[in-house]
Design a protein around this nucleic acid. Structure first.
Lengths: 167, 167
DNA sequence: GAGTGACGTGTAACTTCTTACATGTCAACT
DNA sequence: AGTTGACATGTAAGAAGTTACACGTCACTC
């Protein structure tokens, strides 16, 4: 068992939370409700599901139309998921282009800096709208509330910084 | 020129902001002031500096004691950095273990969920303390303020969620 | 003078993630 | 009958990042 394997955990969590699903379904979840939590495309998801099946964490429940494969979590998968959730101290790996631009803001002329912060602000605003949908109940509402509060904080920072730069 | 290369930008930005430095110095910056913005270890930094030197973005200014090499940014490097800052729309790639645990919180029993959120809260609290130092002036104060406001939002979320879970 | 710890640079093997390519099904519309 | 678009799954090559190892210097303390 390796250190990270968060993609595995995300997949196991989705299967546990919403029931059996295909790789395609799971990829859709990553695009939408999981978008502000963990990102992964189908090219990463399909091979990972195959590996997880080989490791006994998921099982192919059925194969439907158009080659659609439905995966279900196994008891072993549930165990692994539960262990990770309870025991794994989450690692904070920040790799944030927005923060990087904020960091380097002093290197820019005033007008340029203002334009950059405006773009950042608009990005936060868009994400804020996108997150609203998920805060009301359902799986992921805790994460959506966390995301929304952090995005709102970012939005407030952008407004403050703009005011400061314009002074 | 590839899409991401944020490591390059971070290195160029540091060299531009604090002047010539060795790989070792830069690695220290990543550990400290840049820690809440972008993470990279020396095993990633040293080879990247060599590649950047080959591409003409930095130059080896001098070699000091203990094989220490001092890199300086070149005019071409400055140009590249400036272009990225002004033109690159920052991509938001979220891959966040804390948010993942928040997402999956409903899968846990009440007591387990409380323990998990307490651990998350403690993590936010620690990061909050670490960030205070950098908010007062100097390069990176904008980023530190952004980080601090987002960490504070996370802390508030944790307290609220704990209250809700305990009800 | 021996040991310790910070300084300082690097490689190799591996995992993770991205981009581009490749293939085929099915339903709806024109 | 042909086209479009969502459905559905995969591979391969390469970039980015992590972990483990390896080497040598210098200053300070015991």
């Amino acid at each position: 068992m390796l250190a990270a394997m968060s993609l595995r955990i995300a997949l196991l969590g989705l299967l546990e939370a919403v029931g059996p699903a295909s790789g395609y379904d799971l990829a859709k979840k990553f695009e939408h409700s999981l978008n502000h939590v963990w990102q992964a495309g189908h090219t990463q998801i399909y091979p990972e599901l195959l590996k997880m099946a080989a490791d006994g964490l998921v099982a192919i429940e059925s194969e439907g139309a158009r080659g659609r494969k439905i995966y279900a979590i196994t008891p072993e998968g549930t165990r692994e998921l539960h262990t990770w959730l309870v025991e794994h101290p989450p690692t904070v790996t920040v790799r944030n282009e927005v923060a990087l631009q904020a960091f380097l803001l002093p290197l820019l002329a005033r007008d340029e800096a203002i334009a950059v912060v405006e773009r950042i602000r608009d990005g936060f605003a868009a994400r804020s709208v996108a997150l609203q949908c998920y805060t009301e109940g359902g799986v992921g509402s805790y994460a959506a509330k966390l995301g929304l509060s952090q995005v709102s904080a970012g939005l407030a920072w952008a407004e403050e910084t703009l005011a400061e730069l314009r002074r």
